[in-house]
């Protein structure tokens, strides 16, 4: 009875002697996740409590309406409802227009026979991804300025009226989506181009011998080869339908378009950090996170139903 125990003990000591440095290495990263990712989760209870600056989160009194006071307040707040609408609207438009764009570009690049030109196109198209939204908004402000911007100068010279790209809600939404495509279309092709390298080239040759044209090859070889990548990314994007970027709407917005540019992230910033309504904005954040997870799970289940691998 005693012998195996000792041996087990011995092997644990050996194991630790060999691998203790790995655990030592992990201490800092794990501490990071606990402190900066998990401890903030304990602050979520503020959503259900009356915030008080002198008490710790555990001591604050519960909010009215069984703790749901601030959720009710959020949903009767006009700004929040606008923010919710705008978040969904902008994300859906991004999905509708922005999602197919890199797929189309990847197909084009894949068809491009001039190798050096292809590489050059890629280099240039990836570049905007590395510019911050502030820089892009700076460029856009100058480029789209009503009377002094390049685009409107050209439009005027061609005899058209100036377009208020960033100063009118309808046009702003268009510009917002367009700039998103401008920034990320090239970069997002990388993942599709990687998937395309996995397609067996013999398939194309066989198809050519059978007399298939360019579109037939795209339809029957290239697109099926991209299918699972497309679906995985679609799931992730659907899961993010309620998550909102901050940098992009915040740097592009102005007083004239506040109706459409105010999203959940900017709402939380103005009401929470600027307005100090911590309980309300924590409730909004929690709502956003929970709905996000639900959407992700649902989209994943849907993908599995269609026979795809999903993300888990």
């Amino acid at each position: 009875m005693a012998k195996p125990l000792i041996r087990k003990h011995q092997s644990t000591i050996n194991y630790l002697r060999k691998y203790w440095s790995l655990y030592l290495m992990l201490i800092l990263p794990l501490a990071y996740f606990v402190v900066f990712r998990y401890i903030p989760m304990t602050y979520i209870q503020i959503a259900f409590k009356k915030y008080s600056i002198v008490q710790s989160v555990w001591e604050m009194p519960w909010a009215d309406n069984h703790g749901f006071e601030y959720f009710i307040k959020a949903f009767s707040n006009r700004d929040f409802l606008y923010a919710l609408r705008n978040t969904i609207m902008l994300n859906l438009l991004d999905l509708l227009v922005g999602f197919p764009a890199p797929i189309i570009l990847a197909l084009l690049l894949n068809e491009l026979p001039y190798k050096r030109f292809k590489r050059f196109t890629q280099s240039v198209a990836y570049m905007p991804h590395f510019l911050s939204w502030i820089i892009i908004s700076g460029i856009a402000l100058q480029l789209f300025a009503p009377s002094t911007g390049l685009v409107n100068i050209v439009l005027n010279r061609l005899g058209f009226e100036s377009i208020p790209f960033l100063n009118d809600p309808k046009h702003w939404v268009f510009t917002y989506v367009f700039l998103g495509i401008w920034k990320n279309m090239g970069w997002n092709t990388i993942i599709y181009l990687a998937a395309l390298t996995n397609i067996n080239p013999e398939l194309y040759e066989a198809a050519s011998i059978d007399g298939a044209g360019r579109f037939q090859k795209i339809r029957y070889i290239t697109l099926p080869g991209l299918r699972s990548t497309i679906i995985t990314l679609l799931i992730l994007n659907l899961g993010h339908i309620l998550s909102s970027e901050f940098d992009r709407p915040y740097s592009l917005s102005n007083a004239l378009v506040h109706n459409v540019s105010n999203v959940i992230a900017t709402f939380v910033y103005t009401y929470g950090i600027r307005g100090l309504q911590f309980s309300l904005t924590t409730a909004v954040g929690l709502f956003q996170s929970v709905v996000g997870v639900i959407f992700l799970l649902a989209a994943n289940a849907l993908a599995k139903k269609f026979g795809e691998r999903g993300i888990w």
């Binding site: 992990l26 990263p29 794990l30 996740f33 900066f36 990712r37 998990y38 401890i39 903030p40 989760m41 304990t42 602050y43 979520i44 503020i46 989160v57 992230a265 939380v268 910033y269 929470g272 950090i273 911590f278 904005t281 924590t282 909004v284 954040g285 929690l286 956003q288 996170s289 996000g292 997870v293 992700l296």
Partner: peptide, 22 residues
């Protein structure tokens, strides 16, 4: 366990205000 602990933070985020208060 470590993997799960880390990956979970990719999908669920406490939100801006809890971070701010922390």
């Amino acid at each position: 366990f470590f993997n799960t602990l880390i990956l979970f933070t990719m999908y669920f985020n406490a939100g801006t205000i809890p971070h701010y208060l922390l």
